[in-house]
Design a protein around this nucleic acid. Structure first.
Lengths: 106, 106
DNA sequence: TGAGTATTTTGCAATATCGCCAAATAGCAG
DNA sequence: CTGCTATTTGGCGATATTGCAAAATACTCA
């Protein structure tokens, strides 16, 4: 059995924590479609560049994204397509929540 | 395109944030195997009952777990098996991280 | 009813996260 | 080298999370 301090739990929770923020999840979904540079992400997010950069460093530390420099610009992309699967796996849960919410109203 | 404030992003990030803590991830993996009551979880985690209860309330608010009372005890279980899929989807990413780390050492 | 157990809620202090600003770094063009 | 743009890093206040202790709630049994 994995204890709470096992590397497995630690690594998984680091990854999930990194994904557990609206801005970072948005970034993940954007770069899942195509590699995107920081300045474009900044525009779409509407936050300070430094804020976006810090979110990207969190995603980097979790191993979720890869970066590629092109001139002064840095393009970020998903380091593993499995991240998309992880997110998609949760859709049934969201549907379930909605179903429960509708039932509660009646 | 989903904006950052879209309900979809908000709900997904709430779920992922709830999963992004070692103790809560541990709880999820325990109750994924069989419904477990708070007092047993408390023993396995080694934290105060109130602490465990608070983690469970976070998981509840995210819709991740269901509870069933049996006498004074409350048994928690996964509300959707898809949560297991979500976690399992990340295993390739962890392997990739390890592979990168080994390469870095050489 | 009263004692005892299980769980949740509240309060609080320690710690961590978030987002902006300012400063530092890196790369390109002239 | 200088100026310019893109990005990262450091600093700081505001806010949120975390975990324990104490109080409140819920349920069972005698």
């Amino acid at each position: 059995m994995g204890s709470i301090d096992s590397p497995r739990i630690q690594e998984l929770s680091q990854i999930l924590k990194a994904l557990g923020h609206p801005t970072r999840l948005f970034i993940i979904e954007e770069i899942a479609q195509e590699p995107t540079c920081v300045c474009v992400l900044k525009e779409r997010i509407g936050a300070d560049t430094s804020t976006v950069s810090k979110h990207l460093s969190i995603l980097r530390n979790a191993g979720l994204v890869s970066m590629e420099k092109k001139g002064t610009m840095v393009y970020y992309s998903l380091s593993c397509a499995c991240v998309k699967d992880c997110i998609q796996a949760l859709l049934p849960l969201i549907e379930l929540k909605h179903k429960r919410y509708c039932e509660m109203l009646q």
